[in-house]
């Protein structure tokens, strides 16, 4: 009796499940293949992302030059002090921030409104997706060529439209106080589709019966939007805003291609300042210090994004 029972226990004992969390044995068995499978990524990551990041921070303390090998003389905080005391540095940083201020509100609000309108269309959504998203997949160089042509004084389409309305034509890209607005305008056209698509997806996640219930209670469409749609999209909106800020801070292509940072450096953003210092003036150490400051700015905003997305996930 006892013996049979013992046998039964052995027979019935389930095959040990591969539960990695509980047993030390499996943990041991996992380590080698795990590191092997992560090696290709980690190697490239260390070599081309982490390595350069550290190298940049080290270099920012030296008088490194593009024309000489090696780090050059130690400069201490000299590069940082020079950057923080330089009006060129501050104006380029301000241009980046100003561009972000100009582009983020329209890119968030318009994308939201367009998505809201598209959500009401029963047919032909592919057409809206095509119209708004198509510009997003154009290379910046193509966008620049098209808009330089649109902005061309006297001959461009915009000139024709503005003079047709009986207004005097502004110098879109040549006027220092207007150039950044023109770049922002082009950018809204170029990248709106991305946020539009994010919002469309967010809208599709809102249960339809919420609207139906509200409609039965006599809520007008506008009230439905205010009471249901906007609160339900809060998470999407915070994501869109942070992603948009990060993307706008990385401004480089549009001024580089359309105004060369001009007129008279009026549109030169932080990244182009780095580019000019590092690759035109060959002052690598100084450019590294400016990069480090820019790096910290973007990193701080990105940390907010990571916090927003991670918070939703379990595990870590």
């Amino acid at each position: 009796m006892t013996i049979t029972a013992d046998y039964e226990t052995v027979e019935d004992r389930p095959v040990r499940p591969v539960d990695p969390d509980t047993t030390r044995v499996t943990e041991h068995g996992h380590a080698r293949p795990a590191w092997l499978m992560m090696t290709p990524f980690l190697a490239l990551y260390l070599l081309f992302i982490i390595g350069p990041s550290i190298y940049m921070m080290v270099m920012s303390f030296f008088d490194t030059s593009l024309t000489r090998p090696g780090l050059g003389g130690f400069a201490g905080f000299g590069n940082f002090a020079e950057a923080l005391g330089s009006s060129d540095f501050w104006s380029s940083m301000w241009h980046t921030v100003w561009f972000t201020i100009l582009t983020t509100p329209p890119l968030v609000v318009l994308a939201f409104v367009f998505a809201l309108l598209a959500d009401r269309a029963s047919r032909g959504r592919w057409f809206f997706r095509l119209a708004f998203f198509l510009p997003y997949i154009l290379p910046s160089a193509v966008v620049a060529l098209i808009w330089l042509w649109l902005y061309t004084p006297q001959l461009g389409l915009l000139s024709k439209i503005v003079t047709g309305l009986g207004l005097t034509e502004p110098n879109w890209l040549g006027d220092p106080s207007l150039a950044m607005w023109s770049l922002a305008f082009t950018t809204v056209w170029w990248t709106l589709g991305f946020n539009f698509v994010l919002y469309l997806a967010g809208l599709q996640d809102i249960p339809r019966d919420l609207y139906e219930a509200a409609a039965m209670d006599g809520a007008a469409p506008w009230q439905q939007i205010r009471r249901i749609t906007i609160p339900m999209l809060r998470r999407t909106t915070s994501l869109v805003i942070v992603l948009q800020i990060i993307a706008s801070l990385k401004l480089f292509d549009q001024p580089y291609l359309m105004t060369s940072g001009g007129p008279n450096y009026a549109t030169r953003p932080a990244l182009e300042y780095v580019y000019d210092m590092g690759f035109t003036d060959f002052r690598t150490g100084y450019a590294a210090a400016v990069s480090t400051l820019f790096f910290i700015l973007v990193l701080a905003v990105s940390a907010v994004w990571v916090f927003l997305t991670r918070r939703q996930e379990q595990g870590f």
Partner: peptide, 10 residues
């Protein structure tokens, strides 16, 4: 969080 564009110099 690392902006690759900031790493052009190194």
């Amino acid at each position: 969080m690392i902006p690759q564009q900031a790493l052009i110099v190194p």
